[in-house]
Amino acid sequence: MSTTSAEEKAKEAISAEREALADGHLLPEAYRDDEYGERHVYLPHKVGLPPMRHYLGLVWKRREFAFELSRTTMRAKHFDTAFGQLWLLLNPLLLGSVYFLLVDLIRHHPRPLSFFAHLLGGLFLYQVLQTGATEGSNSVVRGGGLILNTAFPRTLLPLASMATSFKRFVPTLAIWAIIHFASGGGLTINMLWAIPIVAMVTVFSTGVAMFCGAAQVYFRDLSSFLPYLLRIWMYISPILYYWDDVPKHIQHWLLLNPMASMLASWSDVLQKQQAPPLNLMLIGTGWAIFGLLAGSLFFISRERDFAVRI
């Protein structure tokens, strides 16, 4: 009887401590005792998730790691050199040119330069998702050594991939601007709508990067067929064509593609220099929030497995 009572008391104590952790009252990693220094308490995760306030606090505290990882990854790929920077600009430009010629060949009559600006703008923004998903899918497996040796929020690994993706996106805007102005495009205050649209795509892509990063641990061949999936995803997004060219009854179906609303809004803002339709912005925001929540919750709930599956 006494043993059972002691066990029950111990269980109650653990349960109370877990609740305190979940409420953020007790932060084991950040907790400093004047006499004994750091104190860490490790308890079973509740429904597969660690205490979220504490977890997010740790992510913020170690954000420098994600930025440094992104910086060193870019340096390892020589993107810090003059030729590396040039390749960052040339690669998407060449890709855009190929698609432009291809679309012209299929249509049998040439498109104006403004369409090239639309195509490049869409392609460059889509690459935030493409690079984020590709780099993110490898981030956990590639960081296996660190995962096996150090306790830190694994979320930082796909976040570093997203930082890399965003850094690769920013310089491409210069190319888009040159083509845009060369095609007679203007500059209006409505173009500021581009900022929330880029934010939407970045938030959504972060969720996708996290999902792919965790999924790659379970299916190592994901990175082999991910490029094909992303290529198909691009074809069903309004990049190689204008959103307005899509028949209305098909537009409804295309909105099931999260990138469709965001890229349609992006094209409206950059090409027509007009505020995007409210319904597209609302749908895009919804997809961005859903993508981030679904991707991050899936990733964090699987984090514990990484140390035993890598």
Partner: peptide
């Protein structure tokens, strides 16, 4: 993280 029980580490 443990499946059951508790680990406390000071330092």
């Amino acid at each position: 993280p443990p499946t059951e029980g508790r680990v406390e580490v000071v330092g």
